Amino acid sequence: MKLYQPGDTSRAICPHCGKLVSTTFAYRDVPFEDGSGVVKGILAAVCDECQNVIAIPAQSTPAIRRARDAAEISLEVSIPAPEVEILDAAAYRVDPSATTRFRKSLFAFYLQRLRHSEETAEMLRRDFEAWNAVKTEQRKRVSRGIRIPHRRLSFKISPKTDRDVQWLMETSGMNKTDTVRSVVMEIEKDLLGPNTPRELRHLQDIAAVVNA
């Protein structure tokens, strides 16, 4: 790997100027591509004509990764233990070798299917209320006075995923815990039902990447 120093020069295509330009390496604050944050003071190739950052050398990648990790948001709720087990059982159906890391991928995948449709969010709330009533009654009958523990479910999610969670909360009128539980409900219906889920192959591909 070539290590660049401030003041080193190179040439690259500038997307702003639309041509091959000379560049000079300098320290700059660089925003993430998705607009979720900024990594401060990394070495980058700067166009000599328009002064925009147009390339990032490999040596700056660790700083970008650290900045992105710091920008992640904690999603943490306490839910009934059987619902955490639903996530793990669903993950096992997708990939028997999946680790707990795959819980977040499952959650994010199903969240994407629910977002940005007010009609879907309203239907989700109604379905969750009915599902929760059934689960509560089942636990009362089966537990016979045995306490059902709650477990902490915690993910580090991107600002974009956090915005999707916030949108679903606001649109459905559910709090954060019930919003997460409603996604668990969708996972149970799709992955733990009697039929083979239509997205199973796609999820298996995701699991292979997550567990690589």
Rank of each mutant, 00 (worst) to 15 (best):
K2W: 14
L3D: 01
Q5G: 07
Q5D: 10
D8K: 03
T9Q: 08
C17W: 03
G18V: 00
T24Q: 03
F25M: 03
F25D: 00
F25A: 01
Y27T: 03
D29H: 10
D34N: 15
D34C: 13
D34I: 06
G35D: 10
S36A: 13
V38I: 15
K40I: 01
G41I: 06
A44L: 00
V46K: 13
D48R: 07
D48I: 02
V53Y: 02
V53G: 01
I54C: 00
A58P: 01
Q59I: 06
P62M: 02
A70N: 02
I73K: 09
E76I: 11
E85K: 15
E85N: 15
I86Y: 08
L87K: 04
L87P: 00
V94P: 03
S97K: 14
S97Q: 11
A98E: 07
A98D: 02
A108K: 13
F109M: 07
Q112V: 08
R115Q: 11
E118K: 04
M123E: 14
R125G: 04
R126P: 00
D127Y: 01
D127G: 10
F128V: 06
A130M: 10
W131E: 15
N132V: 01
N132K: 14
A133G: 13
A133R: 08
K135Y: 14
T136E: 08
T136I: 05
R141T: 14
R141V: 15
V142F: 01
V142R: 02
R152F: 09
L153Y: 05
F155D: 04
F155Y: 12
K156G: 08
I157S: 09
T161Y: 10
D162Q: 08
Q166L: 10
Q166K: 10
L168V: 11
M169Q: 10
M169I: 09
E170I: 04
M174G: 14
K176H: 06
K176V: 13
T179E: 08
V180Q: 13
V183A: 05
V183P: 09
M185Y: 07
E188P: 09
D190H: 03
N195S: 13
T196P: 03
P197V: 13
P197A: 14
R198S: 10
E199T: 12
E199L: 07
H202Q: 10
Q204A: 04
Q204N: 08
D205H: 15
A208W: 04
V210Y: 05
N211I: 11
N211G: 07
